[in-house]
Amino acid sequence: MKLKLRVWRQKNAHTPGQFVEYHADNLNPNMSFLEMLDVVNEQIAAKGEEPIAFDHDCREGICGACSCVINGEPHGPHDKVTTCQTYLRSFQDGATVTIEPFRANAFPLIKDLVVDRTAFDRIIQAGGYISVGTGHPPDANSLPVPKPLADLAMDAAACIGCGACVAACKNASAMLFVAAKVSHLNLLPQGQPERDVRALAMVDQMDKEGFGACTVTLSCQAVCPKGISGSFIAKMNRDFLRAMLLNP
């Protein structure tokens, strides 16, 4: 199959970018979207030009490295799928496909389709951890976790931190990411000692990074490759409120 690609090319954060058209021919419909970019890059490199820079790592949909807004949707047309797990059979033969980076001021562009998502790392550093004594590992089952809580915490922990929620949000808000990370630890017994400090510190860092507020459009939930529920944002609001009241 064939595709006409409109790819955002930008040398670095200080140089203005633009769309460049590429014609990708002889594609196999069972190629993944990133494999298609690999093929196009080989052709570009053969001509002695600079290949398209894009983020990728595991290519199994679990690492959260790949990004891209494909035809206006973060991670492309499918629900609960990352860009690396999007296959060319999802596109019509001969279609024009527009590929842009995730756009948010908190995710400054590095090159072409690659953006700097270390803002997420700084939010995790602010409170996305638990403090435990090192030494001998605890006995198995010494810390009982009710099954419904374990399931809910697991749903939140499924977040791979890709940033699609920020990319899709009209306010470039990181609420879904922060909510998932706050909820994951705040639901479990291991997270209780730092529950309030965590909610306050992670929200403070989120605001400091320049992400927007939540308008509750739930676009984040719709594009999340892991299907994180927007109701975790409500839980984060609850935890934040509780933390503010208990730690004035």
């Binding site: 035809n71 842009e100 001021n105």
Partner: peptide, 19 residues
Amino acid sequence: QNRQTRDQRYATRKLVKAT
């Protein structure tokens, strides 16, 4: 505040979910 979060707009934007 929300308007300060994205200087470079998307060229194509599909509205997912947002009413």
